[in-house]
C-alpha cells in the first residue's frame, strides 16, 4: 500500500514530464522547450554556479520580509487576539488586506522607496503579514476556555496563562499561518523581481526571455517552484512533528 502511493507519485511525475517532453518536441510553440532541454539548462546553471548567485539575491528580500512579517505578525496577532479593543481597532485592516489585491500598491511603493531592496522587502511583507496576523489572532481567540479556567483555578497569573496555555495552544495554528505567509512571501518576492527590478531568479527569467533562451527561463521557473514547494513541505513536516496529537485531546470523544 505504501508502495502503491509511491509508484503512483512517480508515475504521475513521469506522465507530466513526459507530456512536457512530447509537447516540447512537437513543438506546441517556439517558446516551449522540451523537459530535457530545460533540465539541461538547469544543470548548466547549477554547475556554473549562476543559479546560486541568483538565489542569494532572491532570498534576501524574501528572508528579511518573512522575518519581519513573522515577528510583527505574531506580535500583532497575539495583541489582537488578547484584547477586544485592539481586535476592534486592527482586525478590519488586516481583513481588508487579506481580501485585497495588494500587488496594486507596488507602483506606489516604488515611488516611495525606489527600486531597491526596501521596496522588495515591503512587497514581501504586505503579502505575507495579513495571513500571519489573522491566523495568530484567531488561534488566540479560540484557546479552549476550559484550559484557561483550569489554569485560573490553579491560581495562574495572567502572564502564566499567556505563556503556558494560550501560546502553546495557539502554536499549531500560528505555525500553519506562518506557512501560508511564507507561501505568499514567495509570490511577493518573485513578483517584485519581475515587476520592480530584475534581480536574482527574476533576472534569469526576464533576461533569458529577452534573448529567447527559453530552456534557461523554464529552468529558473522550475527551480523556484521546486524550492518553494520543498521549503513549504519542510515546514509542514516540522509542524506535524512538533504538534503531533495537539489538536486531539481537548475533546471529550
Amino acid at each position: 500500500m505504501q508502495n502503491r502511493a509511491l509508484y503512483l507519485k512517480v508515475l504521475s511525475a513521469l506522465l507530466v514530464f513526459g507530456a512536457w517532453e512530447i509537447a516540447g518536441r512537437i513543438p506546441v510553440s517556439y517558446a516551449f522547450p522540451t523537459f530535457l532541454e530545460s533540465m539541461a539548462a538547469l544543470a548548466r546553471m547549477t554547475f556554473d554556479g549562476s543559479i546560486f548567485v541568483a538565489y542569494a539575491e532572491t532570498l534576501k528580500p524574501l528572508v528579511v520580509g518573512v522575518a519581519i512579517s513573522t515577528f510583527l505578525g505574531i506580535g500583532f496577532g497575539l495583541w489582537i487576539g488578547l484584547s477586544a479593543r485592539f481586535d476592534w481597532l486592527f482586525s478590519p485592516i488586516f481583513i481588508v488586506m487579506q481580501a485585497a489585491p495588494l500587488a496594486a500598491l507596488i507602483p506606489l511603493l516604488v515611488m516611495a522607496y525606489g527600486i531597491g531592496l526596501t521596496s522588495k522587502v515591503f512587497v514581501v511583507c504586505i503579502m505575507s503579514m495579513p495571513v500571519i496576523v489573522l491566523s495568530t489572532s484567531s488561534a488566540v481567540r479560540n484557546t479552549p476556555a476550559s484550559m484557561k479556567e483550569m489554569a485560573k483555578s490553579f491560581l495562574a497569573k495572567d502572564y502564566e496563562i499567556l505563556l503556558k496555555i494560550i501560546i502553546p495552544a495557539a502554536s499549531p495554528m500560528i505555525f500553519s499561518g506562518l506557512r501560508l505567509g511564507v507561501s505568499a512571501g514567495f509570490i511577493g518576492a518573485i513578483l517584485s523581481e519581475l515587476k520592480i527590478t530584475p534581480t536574482g531568479v527574476g533576472d534569469i527569467i526576464s533576461y533569458s526571455r529577452s534573448i529567447a533562451d527559453y530552456p534557461s527561463m523554464y529552468a529558473a521557473i522550475f527551480s523556484i517552484i521546486v524550492l518553494a514547494v520543498l521549503f513549504l513541505n519542510l515546514l509542514e513536516k516540522t509542524e506535524n512533528y512538533l504538534f503531533k496529537g495537539n489538536d486531539r485531546g481537548y475533546v471529550t470523544d
Binding site: 476550559s146 483550569m150 490553579f154 503556558k164 502553546p168 504538534f243 496529537g245 495537539n246 475533546v251 471529550t252
Partner: peptide, 12 residues
C-alpha cells in the same frame, strides 16, 4: 481544586 467535565488537559 476543580475537576473539569472536558478534562482541560494540556494536549502538548
Amino acid at each position: 481544586a476543580f475537576v473539569f467535565q472536558d478534562f482541560a488537559l494540556l494536549p502538548w
